[in-house]
Design a protein around this nucleic acid. Structure first.
Length: 303
DNA sequence: ACACGTAGAGAACTGGT
DNA sequence: ACCAGCACTCTACGTGT
C-alpha cells in the first residue's frame, strides 16, 4: 500500500512544491520559500519495468558514487551455512573463510580505494556542515574520484582536494555556497583550497563562469522572509542590470543584495541595508554602492 | 536607527619578468 | 615564484535625517 504524505508550504499553505534533485532543494512554487535542502532520495533501485514501462517497485539503496564500489558489492555472509540453511562441512568452511578474507582485502585493496574511503568520509562531514543536497555531494564525489584517478591528490592534502571538489561542484551546479563558507567548514586555509581548485579545473578542463546574481535571490529572500513579489521584482531589476552591463566586475552577491533592497522598497517590504548585509555576506557599503549605481543607471525613483 | 559618504587597507586577479 | 598595477570590497569612521 502506498502511503502518501501530504506536504504543504508552512508559509502560504500551497501544495505546489517543486523538487530540485540536483540542488537537493524543495521550494514552494507560490511563495519561493526553500523548505529543505536535504531531501531524502525517493528513488531506490528499480526491480524492473512492465512492458508498458511502469515501474515494478524499488529495492535497496540508490546506487552511490560515494562508495568505492558504487555500493553494489556482494558480501559472503559469516554464517557457515549453505543456501538451504545446512551447516557446511569443514572443507567448505575453510574455503569460505579464505574467500571472505580475500574479499575483505579486495574491496579496499589499493591505495586509490583507501584514499577514496578517507576522502568520502571527509566529504560526508563537509556536506553535512554545509547542508548540501545529494546531487551536489555526488557531483563532488565524481570530481574527486577523477582527481584521484588522474593522480592529482598525491602529495596534496586530501581535505583540501575534497573541499576544492565541493567548491567546483557547487560552481558547476550553480549553487550558492561561497568559497569562504567552505573554508570555514574545514581545517584548510583558503589559499590551499583555491590552489587545489585551480589545479583541478585545469587538469579536468573544467570551465567555470562567474555566478549570476540571480542564483542568490531565492535563498536571500527566504532568509529575509520576503514574498514572491519581491523575488520577481528583483529578477526584473537584475535582468535590466545585466543588459546594461552593470554587473561586470562586481560581486554577484553584492548586486543581488542591492537589487533585493530596491525591490523590497518598490514592493513595500522594506528591509534595512544592515539586515540584507547580514544574510548576504557583503557589507552595507557594498550594498549602498551597488544600490546607488542601479538606481542611477536604471533611472528608478524611490521616494 | 537608519542612510549615506569617504579614506585607507587589503584581497584577488592579470600580466610581465 | 615574485612583483606591480588595477579594480573592487571591507573596516572604520563621520555626517545627516
Amino acid at each position: 500500500m502506498e502511503s502518501e504524505v501530504e506536504v504543504r508550504c508552512p508559509e502560504c499553505g500551497s501544495r505546489e512544491l517543486t523538487l530540485d534533485d540536483v540542488r537537493g532543494e524543495t521550494a514552494c512554487y507560490d511563495c519561493g520559500l526553500v523548505l529543505t535542502e536535504n531531501r531524502i532520495d525517493p528513488e531506490g533501485k528499480r526491480i524492473g519495468y512492465t512492458e508498458a514501462g511502469q515501474s515494478l517497485g524499488h529495492v535497496g539503496a540508490p546506487t552511490n558514487v560515494m562508495m568505492p564500489d558504487g555500493g553494489l558489492s556482494t558480501s559472503i555472509p559469516w554464517q557457515n551455512r549453505d543456501y538451504a540453511g545446512r551447516t557446511l562441512d569443514s572443507k567448505a568452511r575453510t574455503q569460505f573463510h579464505r574467500l571472505r578474507k580475500w574479499q575483505g582485502r579486495g574491496r579496499v585493496s589499493n591505495s586509490m580505494e583507501r584514499n577514496l574511503v578517507a576522502a568520502f568520509s571527509e566529504l560526508d562531514r563537509l556536506s553535512g556542515v554545509l547542508g548540501l543536497g545529494r546531487g551536489a555531494k555526488e557531483e563532488s564525489a565524481v570530481i574527486y574520484r577523477k582527481c584521484v584517478e588522474g593522480g592529482l591528490v598525491r602529495g596534496r592534502s586530501i581535505d583540501a582536494m575534497v573541499a576544492a571538489s565541493v567548491y567546483l561542484a557547487n560552481q558547476k551546479l550553480h549553487l550558492t555556497r561561497s568559497l569562504d563558507s567552505i573554508v570555514n567548514a574545514t581545517r584548510c586555509s583558503r589559499k590551499e583550497i583555491s590552489r587545489a581548485h585551480k589545479i583541478i579545473k585545469s587538469a579536468l578542463g573544467v570551465r567555470t563562469r562567474i555566478p549570476e546574481p540571480g542564483i542568490y535571490v531565492g535563498r536571500l529572500c527566504t532568509e529575509l522572509e520576503l514574498p514572491m513579489e519581491v523575488q520577481r521584482r528583483t529578477h526584473i531589476i537584475l535582468e535590466e542590470a545585466t543588459d546594461r552591463e552593470l554587473t561586470h566586475g562586481r560581486s554577484p552577491m553584492g548586486v543581488a543584495a542591492a537589487a533585493i533592497y530596491i525591490a523590497g522598497r518598490m514592493e513595500n517590504y522594506i528591509r534595512t541595508q544592515r539586515e540584507i548585509a547580514d544574510v548576504s555576506d557583503v557589507t552595507e557599503v557594498t550594498i549602498r554602492n551597488r544600490y546607488k549605481e542601479l538606481v542611477h543607471e536604471l533611472g528608478y525613483n524611490l521616494e
